[in-house]
Structure formats: structure tokens, C-alpha cells
């Protein structure tokens, strides 16, 4: 019997979905709205020194990696399934576009976090 490879993509989809449901709204509010406008947070909240210290710490690096990569794979899976249901293209080309993009972005994330060092 030919096995489907779909379950491989369900794990990051589910993990990313749960993570986004639990911490997504707070993260968007803090980094995207409160910090840039200075409402509720100081200008130093995401200063270069502070962001660098966070990204250099092993735990901070791990958090950044998990959040970015799982969010990417969650979004990619949803977009792939929806485009497939919309008959926006051949199944395998949609798969390659969505998962391929997510894979490339994952490598960029690893590269950037590695460049930041410790």
C-alpha cells in the first residue's frame, strides 16, 4: 500500500496552530503594535542591544526558531490545503510551492540565527 506523506506535515501544522492560538495574539500586539507606537512599552523594548542579547541566549534563540518555523509551516499547510480545495493548480505543484517556500524560509531562519551566534 502506498503511504501518504501528509501526516508528516500535520505535526508542524498542529504544533504551530496550537502555539499561534496560545501566544500569537499577544506577540502581534507587543512586537507589531505596542512596541512601535510606544503605547504601554518603552522604546527600548526591542532595542538592538536587547534583541541581540535575546537572540544570542540559547533559550531566546530556541524560542525565535520554534515560533518562526512553526508559524511558517502552519501557514504553509493551510495555504496549500486551501489552494488545493480551490483547484488553484495541480496538487503536486501546489505542494512543491508551499512546502518548498516553507523549507527555504526554514533554512534562512537557521542561517540567520546561526550568524547571530552566542
Amino acid at each position: 500500500m502506498k503511504r501518504s506523506i501528509a501526516p508528516v506535515f500535520w505535526l508542524p501544522f498542529g504544533a504551530g496552530g496550537m502555539l499561534a492560538a496560545l501566544i500569537g495574539p499577544a506577540l502581534v500586539l507587543l512586537t507589531g503594535l505596542a512596541a512601535p507606537t510606544g503605547i504601554g512599552l518603552t522604546n527600548n523594548f526591542m532595542s538592538f542591544a536587547r534583541a541581540m542579547a535575546f537572540a544570542q541566549h540559547p533559550l531566546g534563540k530556541l524560542i525565535l526558531f520554534i515560533v518562526i518555523v512553526l508559524f511558517i509551516w502552519h501557514g504553509a499547510e493551510r495555504i496549500y490545503l486551501t489552494l488545493r480545495d480551490m483547484h488553484a493548480g495541480a496538487k503536486f505543484s501546489l505542494m512543491w510551492i508551499c512546502y518548498g517556500t516553507a523549507g527555504v524560509l526554514t533554512l534562512i531562519t537557521i542561517g540567520a540565527l546561526a550568524t547571530i551566534g552566542s
Binding site: G16, T31, A55, L64, I68, F71, H74, E77, L105, I116
Partner: peptide, 19 residues
Amino acid sequence: GVAVLGYALVLLAGVVCLA
């Protein structure tokens, strides 16, 4: 899912700029 992916891209851009 587009919002989740879009936000991840903004964060990734930040990490790349930080690096």
C-alpha cells in the same frame, strides 16, 4: 493561516536584519 505566516515573515525579517 496567511496572518500566521505573514507575522512569521515579519519576525524572520527582523532576525535577518539583526544578524
